[in-house]
């Protein structure tokens, strides 16, 4: 995929398909340590150990519509291409944690891409889901928790157009501040 954000969206969609009520996305950008770490964790139904062993095999899929599944294999390949590592941990009944660690400066590392669009693409169609997003860049951090936002909104849906517009501005401002004009 041309952006790492699309992998994040894909993994989060797996989490939602696995009946997760909470998805935690953490991005840690540390150019000084030449490190980019992306973690997506959920409290969904988890993956049985016999399936976990084959999770990055593109010919293994839990889909019933086709016999090829490329979401995790492509993310794993994107990490490997940037001299990184890819790991999936899962406990059936408790959840799954997908972690990709990439070499930040690697010439073949895909850009992070449209994180605002990705987060809205997770939040808006899944208003019941709680999303916790943490993004570190060097010493700075940006945190978004939809649970707190929903509790402040009361009976107004988080997918309400005016709320979505505010969220877009809030996330974009948070990310802009994170990079501090870089």
């Amino acid at each position: 995929m041309r952006e790492l954000a699309l992998h994040i969206l894909d993994i989060a969609q797996n989490s939602i398909a696995a009946a997760a009520s909470l998805v935690t996305i953490s991005i840690d950008e540390q150019p000084g340590r030449d490190l980019l770490r992306i973690e997506v964790a959920d409290n969904g139904r988890g993956i049985p150990p016999e399936e976990l062993a084959q999770i990055t095999d593109p010919f293994f899929t839990s889909r019933t519509t086709r016999d090829v599944g490329l979401g995790l294999p492509l993310f794993a390949q994107a990490a490997e291409r940037a001299e990184g590592k890819f790991e999936v941990k899962s406990v059936p009944g408790r959840g799954t944690e997908v972690t990709a660690t990439l070499r930040y400066s690697h010439i073949d590392r895909a850009p992070l891409g449209d994180l605002t669009g990705t987060l809205l693409g997770i939040i808006v169609p899944n208003p019941e889901l709680d999303l916790i997003y943490t993004h570190y860049y060097k010493q700075k951090s940006f945190l978004l928790g939809t649970g707190e936002i929903k509790s402040t909104l009361g009976r107004i849906a988080i997918s309400h157009p005016e709320v979505v517009s505010w969220l877009r501005d809030f996330i974009q401002a948070g990310l802009d501040d994170l990079y501090g004009g870089e």
Binding site: M1, R2, L6, D57, P58, F59, V68, L70, P73, L74, Q77
Partner: peptide
């Protein structure tokens, strides 16, 4: 870029690439 190939390549095309990963076979 495999995701792009999935979107753009058509049945019976020759697909030219430098990739040698097993994901190529899946695509």
């Amino acid at each position: 870029l495999l995701s792009n190939v999935m979107a753009k390549a058509e049945r019976d095309n020759l697909w030219i690439t430098i990739q040698g990963h097993q994901n190529v076979v899946a695509v």
